[in-house]
Nucleic acid binder design. Structure first.
Length: 231
DNA sequence: TACCAGGAGAAAA
DNA sequence: TTTTCTCATGGT
């Protein structure tokens, strides 16, 4: 997976969809909360949950932990998996405060910070990397289901299957994909932020059109079409 | 009605 | 070690 190919895809997506200016949050802490709530969930549902939570408490680790467990789960209901996400959010807030909050965590190196995040119950590789990139401005490339599918269909990742196989085809490991992107693109926080946002924006443009694109496996105006339309 | 949406962890094979 | 199951609401 060479840098020219990856930068070519990025240029095509940017030219087609424009800058996305991500992450959609007002504070760094809200980025972290949103990263947990958006696990396997559409962002529109996460926004509803965040609005319900903000209506009850100020969005801080202390306030979340002070909120009754049942009330927290109820606030998170629109995001789905609300019981599990309430537990995960509380686990994160506890670890966050024990670590000394944002300022103390920001002093850690990226590998140490990533290890800390992954040690928290409910924070896996993608959630950790979302937080590292968008809350801590670390040069970590976020690999999600859309990344896997688009770049597999474009022939830039090994593995994968038929275009209609969905997001659960044969996969390269998360770490190997992440490292491949980071090595090819170099440590560029702004590029990583915008690139991931464009991939997700493309993935969210679900127009319920069938069949799926034969090149990238997505519906509607797809990444492969965007790339192939470039000179 | 059925399917899908920016995962993660536990249990089973 | 790898695969499967569970968690759950909202939009189309």
């Amino acid at each position: 997976m060479g840098p020219d190919a990856l930068r070519g895809v990025y240029s095509a997506l940017l030219a087609t969809f424009g800058p996305q200016q991500w992450w959609p949050a007002e504070t760094r802490f809200e980025v972290m909360v949103g990263a947990i709530l958006t696990q396997n969930t559409a962002w529109t549902n996460v926004e509803q949950a965040l609005a319900r939570l903000r209506a009850r408490i100020p969005l801080s680790a202390e306030a979340i932990l002070a909120l009754d467990a049942a009330a927290l789960a109820d606030a998170l209901r629109p995001s789905g998996y609300f019981n599990i996400k309430a537990l995960r959010l509380r686990a994160f807030c506890t670890a966050y405060l024990e670590a000394g909050g944002f300022s103390a965590l920001a002093e850690r190196g990226t590998p140490a910070l990533r290890t800390w995040l992954l040690s928290i119950n409910g924070v896996g590789p993608e959630t950790a990397d979302d937080i590292l990139l968008y809350a801590f401005d670390r040069p970590v490339f976020v690999v999600d289901a859309y990344t896997r599918r688009i770049f597999t269909r474009l022939g830039l990742l090994a593995g994968g299957g038929a275009p209609d196989e969905g997001l659960s085809g044969k996969k390269m490991g998360y770490e190997s994909i992440r490292q491949a992107f980071e090595q090819a693109l170099g440590p560029d926080v702004a590029l990583f932020k915008e690139y991931h946002a464009l991939i997700v924006f493309q993935g969210k443009r679900v127009c319920r059109q069938r069949p799926l694109c034969g090149q990238c496996g997505l519906r509607g105006s797809c990444a492969a079409a965007a790339v192939s339309s470039q000179p």
